[in-house]
Structures are given as structure tokens and as C-alpha cells.
Design a protein around this nucleic acid. Structure first.
Lengths: 210, 210
DNA sequence: TGTACATCAGTGAACGCGCGTTCACTGATGTAC
DNA sequence: TGTACATCAGTGAACGCGCGTTCACTGATGTAC
């Protein structure tokens, strides 16, 4: 048996409910913020009954964790793609990655919120924790290459550089790149702010400027 | 008429309900996160009926905004106190202020969440916006002094320095200083990470190291 | 290729619960005289 | 200093609503033979 709903034909079995619920969650975050995410509303938007989500997620936290996990996977891909193996130079590629970071925060604001501001405990969701680590690993590997191109004397630890980069980028993203009303005003673009910060920081490290 | 409740005597009129509701909100944030804040529960903890909060706050957002506003005021005081007019040197005082920033994020985690992760729109609450600006002004004034002690040639804009500082400190605080389960693991203390970042950054600016 | 059957994914009705919100009310406080 | 009265801050009962959650169920799918 099958019938139409919202102009689309679908059978008794949704077939793709898990993904539909995750998409609904992203829409809800974008529209109402993380507090606007409920099982009932996500089910409604996916066109199924309120009990259906329980076949795929234990509770709201698990749904949000799944969305955050997918976000981290996508984030890792975006960062990796922007790094381009450090071409044409590690410093140039690193800055490009910084812009990609902010682009992600802007274009996938709902994912970014699920990843960093959802309040879902990391320990309780191993998949999420691993996905987060994989994304950070991209940043860290880039920092390794960046650092390897510096003079041996006074070469900084790559992990530290990666953590500083992450902190600065996250700070800029979460203060100045939000889509909601909590965004702070800025007399320049967030990209300019982050890039300028990177340049100063790299100079402080004694890095070749390109 | 007066009677006892929870071992304390209080009259029909609470006398300090506004503050009691704000304190209850802080406790709720600390215990359950921002999503755990409800009018009903705050009233319950303050020992009044569910209708009482309406005499002081229009809705939940206004309550949270009031808490965030008070948080920014306190934050500004803390930063100002740590800056100590830039003694003994602007660089040393600036770093001390960075530690004070992280201390605040840790010791007043609930305030910090209300200030930066509550999802309350800034535009809708002018008092909140002003309090936020006042806090940032402390940071900015410190940056002015710091910059003024640098060689005129290549002296960076103080506003930019302040924004970089804020971004880095907020990034470290929000990634690594949280009290909830969303805190990331770190192979050093957040203070060390932030201080090292400052030092590199200041060096990149060409600042005197003390 | 067809049939029987197990399994799976979604239904819809039901329930309790807590929250937001309104309302007429009432006890306490402050002030004018 | 005492009294009358206006104002204020809290009460408690009531209501609707949406959410979370459970349950026996049923339609669809896949697989063994």
C-alpha cells in the first residue's frame, strides 16, 4: 500500500526516516535554536507519527548527537578539502583552512550549533567523540606540516599550534559568525579578523610568511 | 503575617524575589543546562507560586537576559580588577587578565553560559547589550594601553588586538573550560594554553615581552 | 517463480506530566493627613 | 502618633497545550524453500 502526502508518494514504511529526522532537527535548530528540537516536532516534520522516532533514536539527545556526528564528519571533509595537502605553501593553505572553518560555521550553522552548543555530553556518545577527534585530527595534521616547515630551533609543538588555531577560529565563529540574534557586531568581516589573527600568531611563531 | 518555610521566616511578600529567581536560574543552568530553566521551576525553588515571577519578568527570556546582564557586570568588574591599571607592565597585566577571564568562565560557569550560549537575542534586550559592551570596553581599554607601549612603527590597532584576545580567550573557555560534559580533553591546563597563545601573539605583534 | 512466514518499521490511541498563562483574590507596605 | 487608604507583590485555582512514552496493532519487506 502506498499513498501521497505533501505531494510525494510514500509507502507505509518511510524508508529514510532516520535521515529525515536528522534533517528536520537541523531545520528546527535553524528556526528555533537548540531548545526548539523535540521528538514530537521532528516526527511531525518528517510526516510520521510521534512514536516512529523511537525506532531509530533512544531519545532527543541521541538524535542531536547523531546530527552533531554527521556535522563533524562533514566538517572534517571540508577542512581536508581546503587544506589541499598544504599547497601552494603550508602557511597559505593553513589560512585557507581558517576561512573554510568560518565558512562552515556560517553555511552549516545548525550543524555547528549541534556540534558545539548542544549541551549533549560527549562521554555519553562515543561516535560523536570519535567524529570530533577525526575533525580535529585534520587540523592537527595540517599544523604538523606547517610546523615542519619552520626552522628546527624554536620549532613549536604542532599540537599546541593546532589547539590555538582551533580556539581562535572557534572563538571568532561563535562570537561573530552566528546566524541567530546572539551574533556580536564587528567593524570588519570575521574572515578578516581571523586571518589577521593567524598572521600575527604565525609571525610570533617565527614562521615563514609563505 | 509571616511564617516559616525551609527554616527561614518570611512574610507574605518575599522581599527579594527578583534576586531569588535569578539565583534559582543560575542553579538550574549549573544543574541541567540552559534548557532546564523554566519559570515554573525557578518559582518553585524561590518558594513562591508559579504566577509570582510574572511580577518581575515578562517571560523566560527576560529572566535569562537579566541573569546574563548581571553576569556581564560582574565579568567587567573581575576583568577590571585583574588589569590593575596595567601594573607592573601592560603585557604582564594583560596576561593576568586572560587568566581572570578563564577563572570567571570556570567559577561562574552558569553566568558564562547565560552570557554566551543562552540563545537570547541581544537586540531584544538593550540592557544586556550595554552590559556586554561595558565588559568588552574593559578589554579594549587594556588593549589600548598595551598597544601604546609598542613602537609607533607598525603599532597594531587596539580594537583588533582586543577582538583577537576576546576570540582566543572565549574559544579556550568554551572548548576547554566548561563544567558540563561538552568539555574537550586537553593535554595541558586551559590557562597554559591561553597564556602560551597570548605570548606567541604578542611576539607576533612585536610587543615588548614585559 | 510462487508461497509462507519472520521480521521490521510505522500507526494511532492513550496516559501522565509539567509548563505557560490568566484571573480574581488578599495580605503587607507605605504614605497622606 | 495613629488611622485610612492606595498600591504593590504574592496566592492558588484553573485551563489548554505539547511533549514524552508505552502499547497492541498492522502494513511492507525480505528470505527460505
Amino acid at each position: 500500500m502506498s499513498w501521497t502526502r505533501n505531494g510525494e508518494t510514500r509507502s507505509y514504511h518511510h524508508g529514510n526516516l532516520r535521515e529525515a529526522l536528522m534533517q528536520a532537527t537541523l531545520d528546527l535548530i535553524a528556526e528555533k535554536g537548540i531548545a526548539g528540537v523535540t521528538f514530537a516536532e521532528a516526527a511531525r516534520r518528517a510526516g510520521v507519527s510521534a512514536a516512529a522516532p523511537y525506532r531509530h533514536f533512544r531519545d532527543r539527545d541521541e538524535l542531536i548527537a547523531a546530527v552533531a556526528t554527521a556535522g563533524f564528519d562533514r566538517f572534517a571533509e571540508v577542512l581536508k578539502a581546503s587544506w589541499q595537502e598544504g599547497r601552494p605553501s603550508p602557511a597559505a593553505a593553513y589560512e585557507r583552512m581558517g576561512r573554510a572553518y568560518l565558512d562552515f560555521a556560517r553555511q552549516h550553522a545548525a550543524h555547528y550549533i549541534a556540534m558545539f552548543e548542544s549541551g549533549v555530553p560527549l562521554e555519553a556518545h562515543e561516535e560523536l567523540q570519535l567524529a570530533g577527534s577525526r575533525a580535529f585530527a585534520v587540523l592537527r595534521e595540517a599544523a604538523e606540516v606547517l610546523v615542519a616547515h619552520m626552522p628546527v630551533a624554536g620549532r613549536p609543538p604542532a599540537l599546541m599550534v593546532a589547539l590555538h588555531t582551533w580556539s581562535l577560529a572557534h572563538g571568532v565563529a561563535s562570537l561573530f559568525c552566528r546566524a541567530d540574534g546572539a551574533r556580536r557586531k564587528l567593524p570588519m568581516t570575521p574572515d578578516e579578523l581571523l586571518e589577521a589573527g593567524f598572521l600575527v600568531y604565525l609571525k610570533g611563531l617565527g614562521a615563514p610568511s609563505d
